[in-house]
């Protein structure tokens, strides 16, 4: 029997199955994944349906509708008014809003200031927590408390802590912080009350955000640290590596995936900052007399909603979406180079 090539065998099987069988060429129909797919694909869709339907209703539809709304004016969900196309005019409106520029500036500054500070602090605290044995659990709980408390409530507490009511030299209320800095002979600062400066407000909000962001970051970084094989540290110790060098050359690279995660999520969270400012200043987003001084982009979006300016609000949120997308992409690129998975 002469030897046939695979193709010849296939041809023979198709043209003359009997002859092929006689020559002991029997081609078993192999269940390729495609065959299985053909038969079972509908099943897969059935199984996926509940999740897909929910996603369609609650995620994809709102997202796509936001894009649509950004191009409309007079849109309301109840159809009370007639919406009409305005093209990209809403985006123009947003960008030209004086308020929006203030919001953008506040948001970007909050991110740029708080993310590095809170991440560094969280890393240091996590390393410290990881290196102590007694009371570690207790400290972990203490550091985690802010995470389970309500942002608005804590914001109000912050307002109290930074409070100062004074008419000229006649001080009526002087809160803890001002009393504290008074101990060092410094002049009291009007942090959050009428007539307080933008810088003072910013300081309070940043303090709040850093404080509020710490627990989650500590938790993630501590988890990362506890996963690092202790032998790396023992090896470093044997090689007389200084503590600082161990930290920068071993600890940081080995927790870099967690660091990257923490930084990306906190940038995203930072750009969506809103509730902390409401907590401290109320819905006016600023101290009395200079309302909106501390407003953010999300605050801007909320502010537009009651005036049937859903188009403008949508446009603003899409701009925010774009900014977050770009920042996250940059974060991703940077971490690709520096993170050691």
């Amino acid at each position: 029997m002469e030897k046939l090539s695979d193709n010849e065998v296939l041809e023979l099987v198709h043209s003359d199955p009997a002859a092929a069988a006689q020559n002991r060429y029997i081609v078993h129909r192999v269940n390729t994944s495609r065959d299985i797919g053909d038969r079972n694909q509908y099943k897969a869709w059935v199984y996926l349906a509940p999740a897909l339907i929910l996603l369609l209703i609650f995620s994809f539809y709102p997202l796509i509708n936001t894009f649509r709304m950004a191009l409309l004016n007079g849109y309301t969900s109840d159809g009370f008014t007639t919406a009409y196309q305005v093209g990209f005019r809403n985006f123009k409106t947003v960008v030209n809003f004086v308020d929006f520029k203030q919001c953008l500036k506040n948001t970007v500054l909050l991110c740029v200031i708080t993310v590095p500070i809170s991440t560094t602090l969280a890393l240091l605290i996590a390393v410290a927590l990881n290196s102590i044995k007694p009371l570690q659990r207790m400290f972990q709980t203490i550091f985690f408390l802010p995470y389970v408390t309500n942002a608005i409530a804590i914001g109000m507490v912050f307002k109290v802590v930074f409070n100062r009511v004074a008419v000229g030299d006649l001080v009526q209320t002087e809160a803890v912080i001002n009393r504290f800095i008074g101990l060092f002979g410094a002049d009291p600062v009007n942090f959050v009350n009428v007539g307080s400066s933008w810088g003072a407000n910013m300081f309070v909000v940043c303090t709040y955000i850093v404080w509020n962001a710490l627990p989650f970051k500590i938790l993630v970084l501590l988890g990362g640290l506890q996963n690092v094989n202790k032998q790396y540290y023992e090896a470093a110790k044997i090689d007389s590596t200084s503590k600082i060098r161990t930290f920068f050359r071993i600890t940081i690279p080995l927790v870099s995936p967690m660091l990257a995660y923490v930084i990306i999520t906190s940038f995203i969270g930072g750009f969506k900052e809103y509730s902390s400012i409401v907590g401290i200043f109320g819905e006016t987003m600023g101290p009395a007399g200079s309302e909106g001084q501390m407003n953010t982009i999300v605050g801007f979006v909320y502010k537009m909603l009651p005036y049937w300016k859903t188009g403008v609000a949508s446009a603003a949120s899409l701009i925010l979406f774009g900014i977050i997308l770009i920042v996250t992409a940059i974060n991703g690129l940077v971490s690709k180079r520096t993170v050691h998975y």
Binding site: N229, Q231, Y232, E234, A235, A236, K237, I238, D239, S240, T241, R249, I250, P253, L254, S256, H340
Partner: peptide, 28 residues
């Protein structure tokens, strides 16, 4: 241990995973 001047090879080697072979050897 850092002042004893010993070299230790761990059971699982404990090579720093983020460093190249050269950087690992240079580390001490």
């Amino acid at each position: 241990p850092e002042n004893r001047g010993v070299g230790l090879v761990f059971q699982n080697y404990a090579l720093y995973p983020h460093l190249t072979v050269k950087q690992n050897i240079l580390f001490p």
